[in-house]
């Protein structure tokens, strides 16, 4: 009876979460549609503006009028029935066919996003995992040994670093390690001529990613991850069950691993899942400062140019990624935390 109830609960739980998942995506996508409708940007006017301001008005006015009409037609921006366009929008979203990118016509917008995705994933996935692991580990140690000198030093450093915005950290790192001690490049994705994928090419890409990664990792690991892990560790140490473990005379390593670490992992895993989902939208400021060719840079370019198709591709991908991470997390939660039941 108990087993049957448990299975039923599980199915109910999965179904409910799946419905929530679909509803989240549907709502977000609809919000994006509404947002786009109200966005005061216009890719066509942006192109015309670029053309006419670049050539300083040495552009035949009659032709510009004709060009404007052509571009509206070409980009499918000539207006139309809002319901029809909403249905078309949904079709595009669920087939991942977002139409051509205006900034690289006629290349499909999604293809552009895919071409930038490996750069972003390479940078953000690695830095997110390292940040999370390092931050939690240091936070755990600093919390567990809260009265030791090194723990206090770590805490002081974290309090100083935490409020520094990551883009300011980026500029500081550039000044230190790309100018005063020039051991890293000023920016870019790579600086050797890539005939084929070799170890040198890979090392060069890593060398270029190190400063952007550090600019994300330092404020991350010694910021939010560290502070939250430390606070959670201190809080867990003051719980009755941990005190009881001490009284029982359990080894401190055992208490650290089984009582403290396991308990702080639950909320921190949520943060990790959300961060991993956010990887797909890129890190706009970091990518712009380091001239790093990721999805964030693409979104930046698309926004500036009014390229709604490309921007849509980036946003929808990000929505799917975050929603999927949360969905997977919901499914995995009961495994991490036995207190959470399939209800």
């Amino acid at each position: 009876m108990s087993l049957r109830t448990s299975k039923k609960d599980l199915i109910e739980y999965v179904v409910t979460r799946t419905i929530f998942y679909i509803a989240t995506i549907f709502t977000s996508v609809t919000l994006i549609y509404v947002l786009f409708k109200f966005m005061p940007v216009d890719a066509v006017e942006n192109i015309i503006f670029q053309l006419t301001s670049a050539v300083g008005g040495v552009y035949d006015p009659e032709s510009v009028m004709e060009l404007r009409r052509n571009l509206y037609e070409m980009f499918g921006l000539s207006g139309g029935n809002p319901i029809e366009s909403y249905i078309l929008f949904l079709q595009r979203v669920f087939t991942f066919n977002f139409g051509p990118a205006f900034i690289s016509f006629p290349t499909p917008a999604f293809q552009l996003v895919l071409s930038r995705l490996p750069w972003t994933i390479g940078l953000l996935l690695t830095s997110t995992i390292i940040t999370w692991t390092l931050g939690n580990l240091l936070g755990l140690i600093a919390g567990y040994f809260q009265n030791r000198k090194f723990a206090k030093v770590l805490e002081a450093v974290a309090i100083i670093i935490y409020p520094i915005p990551y883009y300011v950290m980026a500029l500081i790192l550039i000044l230190l390690f790309a100018f005063l001690i020039p051991i890293f490049p000023l920016g870019g994705g790579m600086s050797i001529i890539p005939e084929k994928i070799t170890l040198d090419v890979i090392l060069n890409i890593i060398w270029h990613s190190l400063l952007p990664a550090l600019s994300l990792m330092i404020p991350g690991a010694l910021g939010w991850s560290f502070i939250s892990a430390r606070t959670l560790a201190i809080e867990t140490l003051s719980k009755d069950y941990t005190r009881y473990a001490w009284i029982r005379g359990l080894p401190s390593r055992h208490i650290l691993r089984r009582y403290v670490l396991k308990n702080i992992l639950v909320p921190q895993t949520t943060v990790l899942a959300l961060s991993l989902g956010g990887v797909f939208s890129g890190a706009v400021l970091t990518e712009v400062i380091f001239a790093y060719p990721g999805v964030g840079m693409l979104a930046y370019r698309a926004t500036f140019s009014g390229d709604l198709n490309t921007l849509m591709a980036v946003l929808i991908l990000s929505i799917f990624a975050v929603a999927t991470s949360v969905f997977l997390l919901d499914l995995l939660y009961p495994l991490i935390d036995p207190r959470i039941k399939h209800r």
Binding site: P40, V41, D42, A43, E45, N46, I48, F49, Q50, S53, G56, G57, V58, T303, F304, S305, G306
Partner: peptide, 25 residues
């Protein structure tokens, strides 16, 4: 931002704007 600026300029959706009143060479 650029996308909004060019659209507003072109469509006349502003009272007064910083502009490039003339270019010549």
């Amino acid at each position: 931002e650029a996308g909004v600026f060019s659209a507003r300029n072109a469509k006349g959706e502003e009272d007064v704007g910083t502009r490039w009143p003339g270019c010549s060479l």
